[in-house]
């Protein structure tokens, strides 16, 4: 048994339970948006989501058994990817729209008011339509999200101490549990063995697109902050500074 010591089915039900609740922006949006008002709504929502993300991460079986340093590094490296994958999942049944929250839905064209954000919206919409094409299942979605979290820092740090080495080995075993769980979820779709292997490849290849969009988004947010288009503060500021 891997680090989690539980069956793939049990692992998946645990990470589905860990899913954060729907989050609402709770602002009266004045349209048409200005660059400042759209960026302010986007960052307000991101800050709220980040708080729930940390609570979510702690519910991923085995995460809190990792060293605190690893927990911080993992979240620091992947937070925007996780936010973006959640956005794609919420948007998967709404072609051409980005469902940031039930009370904050944007059409692609509405991004025209923010310099440089249309390209990012287009990449997000393209990845979302790929997930739609693949008919992404909720069980697969939660596995991909856990994979992004646990895989985010595994190649950038080399353990120096025995504690770090132990934590890294735990992390690698945890990643195996997630891969096992994703393979199990795919095996439930009634596909041939070869189709299952291809699907696993299609889904994991999308992770590199998500990392790419996240990097673009990080650069864009840093630019918006540097130009004082939007005030970034609290947890979002901490995570942005750590990532740039």
């Amino acid at each position: 048994a891997h680090q989690s010591g539980m069956s793939p089915e049990e692992f998946i039900s645990r990470i589905i339970e860990a899913e954060p609740p729907d989050i609402y922006l709770m602002e009266d949006l004045k349209k048409p948006f200005t660059e400042a008002s759209m960026m302010m709504s986007l960052t307000n929502l991101a800050d709220k989501e980040l708080v729930l993300m940390i609570s979510w991460a702690k519910k991923i079986p085995g995460f809190v058994e990792l060293s605190l340093v690893d927990q911080i590094h993992l979240l620091k490296c992947c937070w925007l990817e996780i936010l973006m994958l959640g956005l794609m999942w919420r948007s998967v049944d709404h072609p051409g729209k980005l469902i940031f929250s039930p009370d904050f839905k944007l059409n692609r064209e509405e991004g025209v008011c923010v310099e440089g954000i249309m390209d990012i919206f287009d990449m997000l919409l393209a990845a979302t339509s790929r997930f739609r094409e693949l008919k992404l299942q909720r069980e697969e979605y939660v596995c991909l999200k856990a994979m992004i979290l646990l895989n985010s820092n595994v190649v950038t740090s080399s353990p120096q101490t025995a504690e770090e080495l132990e934590s890294r080995n735990k992390l690698l075993r945890l990643l195996d549990s997630v891969i096992d769980a994703l393979v199990w979820a795919i095996s439930k779709l009634g596909l041939s063995t070869q189709e299952q292997t291809l699907r696993l490849g299609h889904l994991t290849m999308l992770l590199s697109h998500i990392r790419h969009v996240s990097n673009k988004g990080m650069d864009h947010l840093s630019t918006m902050k540097r130009k004082n288009v939007v005030l970034v503060y609290d947890l979002l500021l901490e995570m942005l500074d750590a990532s740039t």
């Binding site: 954060p20 609740p21 708080v51 729930l52 940390i54 609570s55 702690k58 605190l68 340093v69 927990q71 911080i72 979240l75 620091k76 609290d234 947890l235 901490e238 995570m239 500074d241 750590a242």
Partner: peptide, 24 residues
């Protein structure tokens, strides 16, 4: 220490047993 300094809020939320959802 520098890591915890740089990630004060993240560090606190990771250590905090009360989940933010309950706090909210």
């Amino acid at each position: 220490t520098s890591l915890k300094e740089k990630h004060k809020i993240l560090h606190q939320l990771l250590q905090n047993s009360t989940s933010p959802v309950d706090l909210a």
